[in-house]
Amino acid sequence: MINTKKKGLATLRRSTLTAITLILFVMVVIAGFISPYFLDMYNLQSLIRDLAFVGMIGIAQSLLLLVGELDLSVGKIASLCGILAGMLMVNGGVDPFLSLGIALILGLVFGLINGLLITKLRLNSMVATIGMSSVYGGINLVLTKGKAITQIPESIYSLGKGNIGPIPIPFLFTLGVLLLVLFLTKKTKTGRYIYAIGNNREAASILGIKVDKIRVMIYAIVGMICALAGILYVARLGSSQSTIGEKWPMMSIASAVIGGVALTGGTGNPAGALVGAAIISVISNVIVLLGVSVYWQSAVSGIVIVLAISFSSLSTIISEKKQKKLG
């Protein structure tokens, strides 16, 4: 009896990614029917360009969720790195691409600081990154006094605005990040350790896994991915703004959770975060296309996101109820 119950749950969990991808396709088809503009090339391109950013941060966030932690400073790291890259280019006269490289390394350093604080001082990741988010945002304000940095060299615009074929370049970066993250998590020893830590931190430590080292490493990787997203966004806008990434912390967590990555750690596929981000983007896009009042947009997309997150737990609840009846 016990066996069959757990088997049912396991199959449901295993298929979350497939199920959520199916849902995405159904949503795209429905969206195409209800709004003639949805499948328009220009609309699709701008949708994909939007989702590239949320998706990239979502993939990063899913790495942290896998070890049972999260980072709420992702948005502020992204905007600070964008600002720093902009200042290097505009005020410092540094070569634009060198500036981007430096910004990436700075992102890594910010992530490293998060990770070291959380592991060495044994802080709760959520509270610590809320604090650090204020710190990074504060440095941002000190540096810019709230003003955007304009006159970004046009040589980097294509990174954010360009397409290769029909595909927006930021989305290609997101796919690249996803492939690297998937290789890390699914193919390497470190990836297996990440799942092990998320499954059972005490057991991982008893197995001789250097738990804290891996946690710090993930924070650093996440910082670097945030920097990449921030820079690409600067290239897209043609200016560095301190408002970049304001919604990314929550959006990235929502994407990962919709995509089947457990908040408690240990299960899920980072690819799910990209699918989750796509679902969120399609929803907000359709709401705009349908001409929903601006005042209602946030509430409606929120409701749909909550429904989407409920999907996986609902399937668990339903199967448990069935089992109870049988038992």
Binding site: R192, Y193, Y195, A196, N199, N200, E202, A203, A204, I206, L207, I209, G266, T267
Partner: peptide, 16 residues
Amino acid sequence: KMGILPMLSVRENITI
């Protein structure tokens, strides 16, 4: 609490 990695497979638990 301290031994198994509950949500991973027997294979992953053996080879870790």
